[in-house]
Design a protein around this nucleic acid. Sequence first.
DNA 1: GTCTATACGACGATAGAC
DNA 2: GTCTATCGTCGTATAGAC
Lengths: 219, 219
Amino acid sequence: MAANPTARPARSAGRRALPKSEATRERIIAAAAHVLVERGYAGTKLSDIAEQAGLQAGSLYYHFDDRDDIVDQVLRRSVRGILQRVRSAVEALPAGARSFDRLRAAIVAHLEVILESSDVSSAGLRLMSQLPPEIQRRYRRIQRDYGDYWHGLITTAQQDGSIRADIDPVRLRLFVIGQLNWVAEWPRPTRGPIDEMAGDALAIITDGIASGATTGRSE
Amino acid sequence: MAANPTARPARSAGRRALPKSEATRERIIAAAAHVLVERGYAGTKLSDIAEQAGLQAGSLYYHFDDRDDIVDQVLRRSVRGILQRVRSAVEALPAGARSFDRLRAAIVAHLEVILESSDVSSAGLRLMSQLPPEIQRRYRRIQRDYGDYWHGLITTAQQDGSIRADIDPVRLRLFVIGQLNWVAEWPRPTRGPIDEMAGDALAIITDGIASGATTGRSE
DNA sequence: GTCTATACGACGATAGAC
DNA sequence: GTCTATCGTCGTATAGAC
């Protein structure tokens, strides 16, 4: 609504052809994600975003319509980014990979994203509940896509018998993803190297915490 | 700091002897918890709390010093309540209960609290990250007690071999509790009856999602 | 594109009537 | 105890200089 960049960057040959402002736009989004995760939706002030991005509060309005517009962009990239990462991790597997391994790859990828860029990516996961209904609506659509993707992985694995089928696939998914998502809330000191964390998570999720046979599933 | 109830309620015989105002104080705390969970820390306005509690914003100051005082009370009760519930659930077991069963009882109790009073109880769990450092500090002490209690349950079970010992007890705890905590974020429709939810959670946590032997722990 | 200055509204907190 | 003002502060958003 504000910007009207009549001309794209003069030379598109260089290395990437970034419209001059597009770059700071990204900086702002990254900054906003950081503040959002730390302060929550309502606690995110434009002045904080601006400071984090290295400019003045008023300048934000050159790049975005208003506060919610910024939030919107963050959320959109958040889940979209995770979906891409997870999907490409799964598709990177050899052609005939077993459904169980595809699920494992998804689990690891999901956790990796959270641990790596805990800002931009995990923002969407944690803010959902406190968002104003309107934003929540728009955003839920994107998140549903992600849920659907997982749903496919899980039901497939259940059908070919590689994972237990006695639990509703939706709940199973929510329990598993939830366990991973909560890692974003862990105090930094308790976290370990990504590969260790992934290994532990996988071990618990696939095999459980019971040692060997002690189980006792029937109660 | 404001109130100075010179006289306790005249008759203490009745049924409970509630200092007249003590009752509304509780209403306010419950209301605040509700708003906090829905809007986040910064998004919680006094006017919302007041409305939810059935009085005017200004009236809140008769019962509390300021906004943060209210938040403080909510958080304090939140984790304190969960600890009590979980502890009493564990202690309700027969004297010589196996460590594994004690852990199971804790898992179920923790989940139950979240599912029942998703407001007051889960408030503390979800707000931690977005709280201003000062409040966070005071509050972390209480939460540490809760973590310690779990730590005891887990290390004991690891030592007597009833649960796997190849995963750091702290991480094991965080993964398990995290999985349960995230249930508070589930959309209502996806949740089921408490006992079903508890059964599923227990099954996944203890036995994992892999079907029988397919495991593949080594990678 | 980014700045400074400012208008405007919203919310926390206080004062005093009832 | 709870209400109805009201003040002061802070944050969003706009305007206009650079």
